[in-house]
């Protein structure tokens, strides 16, 4: 019917970026399963997947009671040794029966939630990206806990260079005429509606996680620039407040790096509107200009002092 997921993204709680080998340990969530690491164009480490059992109402825009039973797939990722994610999703399918089956039935379909009774995909999609009632399937909570698992790793020193909220991206993917809609809600909440040609594959999840990473980067850089109060505080002070962005964020922008080719048009359309990279570049330029201006001011002040 449809696939729904939620990605939580945050700053890894460590003073510096962590190495590939530390990533492997931090993300080793399951004995006997290795962490998958890709190094180009940016180090990206992905934990093994774990399942969580659920039996609850699914969010429906019509508020009708739709019961789903099955397992949620979750995983964690660390990008550039710096950005941490907890990500969960389920494929919602119609059950062949109206009653709950033995648990082993659901375990043999990892990541599938079966709907007992009637449900419309559109109703669920609207409900999930809208305002789900309490007591409904809460993928965000699951992802949040997976992200906690990473952040609480004893290998991290918890001395992150700046404080920043996590963001959440709730997404719905369906098969059909290609389209994508990205919506900002509150400061930390985003939704994504995606219609892709052909059947669902995990590459869609990769795309959503990649979008979430970049949205978080952009959101965080905006916060840091705002905190620096450029123009309202002395240049040196503003530059000092911008420093964490330069040290820890600015090199991480690699849109669509891990997105399968057939899905890159979705990224590209978001680049046209609203234009993630455009906004990122302008912010980065602003930060660089501040630093350059401040350096110039410093230089001329030194020269002045030398002349006197």
């Amino acid at each position: 019917m449809l696939v729904i997921g939620e990605v939580h993204t945050g700053l890894l709680q460590n003073s510096g970026e962590i190495s590939e080998s530390t990533c492997r340990q931090v993300l080793g969530l399951m004995a006997g399963e290795s962490v998958r690491v890709s190094r180009r164009p940016i180090v990206h480490a992905l934990s093994p997947e774990r399942l969580t059992g659920v039996d609850c109402a699914l969010p429906a825009a019509s508020r009708s009671r739709i019961r789903g039973v099955g397992t949620v797939v979750s995983r964690c990722a660390v990008t550039g040794g710096r950005v941490a994610q907890g990500s969960s999703y389920v494929r919602v399918v119609r059950s062949e029966t109206d009653r709950r089956l033995p648990w082993s039935h659901y375990l043999s379909r990892p990541g599938v939630v079966e709907v007992l009774g009637k449900a419309k995909a559109a109703d669920l999609a609207e409900g999930f990206t809208g305002d789900p009632a309490p007591g409904c399937l809460d993928l965000g909570a699951v992802s949040g806990r997976f992200l906690d698992l990473v952040q609480a790793s004893p290998l991290l020193d918890r001395r992150a260079p700046f404080k920043i909220p996590r963001t959440s991206l709730r997404w719905v993917a369906e098969t059909g005429e290609p389209s994508i809609r990205f919506t900002l809600h509150t400061e930390q909440e985003r939704t994504l509606r995606l219609t892709h040609p052909g059947p669902f594959t995990p590459a869609v999840v990769d795309l959503c996680e990649d979008l979430a990473t970049h949205d978080w980067l952009l959101t965080s850089l905006l916060v840091i620039v705002e905190r620096a109060r450029i123009g309202a505080t002395p240049g040196a002070q503003a530059v000092a407040r911008l420093a964490p962005a330069i040290d820890h964020l600015m090199h991480l922008w690699m849109p669509a790096a891990r997105v399968e080719e057939w899905l890159t048009p979705f990224w590209e359309s978001l680049e046209r509107r609203p234009g993630f990279t455009r906004q990122w570049r302008s912010l980065v330029d602003r930060v660089r200009d501040q630093v350059a201006m401040n350096t110039l001011a410093l230089l001329s002040a030194t020269a002045e002092a030398g002349r006197r």
Partner: peptide
């Protein structure tokens, strides 16, 4: 060097009682 028991322990997925919506840990 293989801890089979741990391997299986990590693969346990608790059978959820009705009303398990994922909002709390099992």
């Amino acid at each position: 060097g293989v801890e089979l028991a741990r391997l299986v322990e990590d693969r346990l997925v608790d059978d959820p009682p009705p009303e398990t919506d994922g909002s709390r840990p099992p």
